[in-house]
């Protein structure tokens, strides 16, 4: 199943980027997406997707991977998960393109979300139309929540939609509305930490180009981010302890103090500690 959101939004690319590159934040816009945890910084996340169709409940532990990104222009991600209870698998590939368009005083950004979704398993046997209909509802709800999020960003303006299904109110010309606040954009944008980069000419649109994440990336406030954790390293621990026991045995056999039995293994254990994270 392929889905597409094509909308002209009254926001800067930075504002939209701040939302789309903050996986926790964008997950909050997806109905039923919960418990988002950063597994690998700016690359891999885990989440739980919960959906309900009548009595059928779906709870899919999902792994979200950011394949590539081009700051304030494009992010490609995939989400794969399986519900053990119902044997249902979900595979979503999504490309989000942002294209800033300046018209008069207003900053507008063209948002193009292309997604391909595969649902398989016992619950998919409910029927393609039912799964597709629910998926369409999810995307529609996602777009509505995104517009609401944007209206919070820049005050009270509704977003503009260039899709044929948009109602009359949402297709009001953007020129009649106040311009977005650059300060707000700078404060919230994921890529706003490097102002020089934003003022420079736009980078080439290489979809697979991976850049170093900005220092003020919004996912940086994930639990545990920036801390150092001490862990035992395998198989180093086993080797070290075995060597230490051998050394202690030799030392005692040669008439040294029996305290070697305590000191040597402790040193072996200490030498097996390593750092993770940071």
């Amino acid at each position: 199943m392929d889905f597409r959101i094509d909308a002209l939004l009254p926001a800067t690319a930075s504002q939209l980027w701040a939302i789309f590159f903050d996986v926790k934040r964008v997950a909050g816009l997806i109905p039923g997406c919960e418990n988002v945890v950063e597994v690998e910084k700016l690359k891999s996340f885990s989440a739980t997707m919960r959906q309900k169709i009548g009595p059928f409940k779906l709870e899919v532990p999902t792994r979200i991977e950011i394949d590539s990104y081009d700051i304030e222009r494009q992010v490609c991600l995939k989400a794969v998960g399986a519900d053990k209870a119902t044997g249902t698998t979900i595979d979503v590939r999504m490309v989000v393109d942002l294209q800033e368009q300046r018209g008069g005083e207003d900053a507008l950004c063209k948002l193009d979300v292309s997604a391909g979704m595969q649902v398989a398993g016992r619950l998919a046997s409910l029927g393609y139309p039912i799964v597709r209909k629910r998926s369409e509802q999810l995307f529609a709800e996602f777009e509505a929540r995104l517009r609401a999020e944007l209206s919070h960003l820049d005050g009270s303006r509704p977003a503009e939609d260039d899709s044929p299904a948009a109602d009359d109110e949402s297709t009001l010309p953007a020129q009649a509305q106040p311009a977005p606040q650059p300060g707000v954009a700078a404060a919230t944008a994921a890529g706003a930490a490097d102002p020089s980069a934003r003022n420079a000419a736009p980078p080439p649109r290489a979809a697979a180009q991976r850049r170093e994440p900005p220092p003020a990336a919004p996912v940086g406030n994930a639990p545990g981010a920036g801390t150092t954790e001490l862990v035992f390293l395998w198989p180093r621990l086993g080797i070290n302890v075995a060597v230490a026991v051998g050394v202690a045995h030799g030392a005692v056999a040669l008439g040294q103090s029996p305290w070697w039995w305590l000191a040597a293994p402790l040193l072996g254990v200490a030498a097996s500690l390593g750092r993770r994270g940071g």
């Binding site: 009595p55 059928f56 209870a85 119902t86 016992r122 619950l123």
Partner: peptide
């Protein structure tokens, strides 16, 4: 909990493990 009447729908779904 759920209500059970004839079971021609519910029991099939329970056996298929799409409902529990």
């Amino acid at each position: 909990a759920t209500f059970h009447a004839g079971g021609t729908e519910l029991l099939v779904a329970l056996k298929a493990h799409v409902l529990h």
